[in-house]
């Protein structure tokens, strides 16, 4: 089980306190009605799914309840860092 650092609580806690919430920095459409089918496909379905460094969202459901972002290596499952939602991509 992974230990995850919550940037809000400032603690490393076991994975079972957290819920994974998918790839990070997938921006919602600013003007949805202007989106083409290709843009909707990219927003809804296409994911980076990299073998290596991955920016992803987690939520500390059994803690502060807040969403934050993390950088994790998908081959070793090691966390490089976690950072608060709204901060630029790391």
């Amino acid at each position: 089980m992974m230990l995850i650092h919550c940037p809000y609580c400032g603690e490393r806690r076991p994975e079972i306190e957290f819920a994974y919430a998918g790839e990070a920095h997938v921006a919602r459409p600013v003007d949805p009605s202007a989106y083409t089918d290709e843009e909707w496909e990219r927003f809804l379905f296409i994911r980076a799914n990299p073998r290596g460094r991955h920016n992803e969202r987690w939520r500390h459901i059994h803690g502060c309840g807040r969403f934050f972002n993390a950088v994790r290596d998908t081959v070793t499952d090691k966390f490089e860092t976690t950072y608060k939602a709204g901060e630029p991509r790391k």
Partner: peptide, 13 residues
């Protein structure tokens, strides 16, 4: 498991 990974292993829980 809940997260994206290529590690071919998962968590005990």
């Amino acid at each position: 498991d809940q997260y994206v990974s290529y590690s071919q292993r998962g968590a005990l829980h």
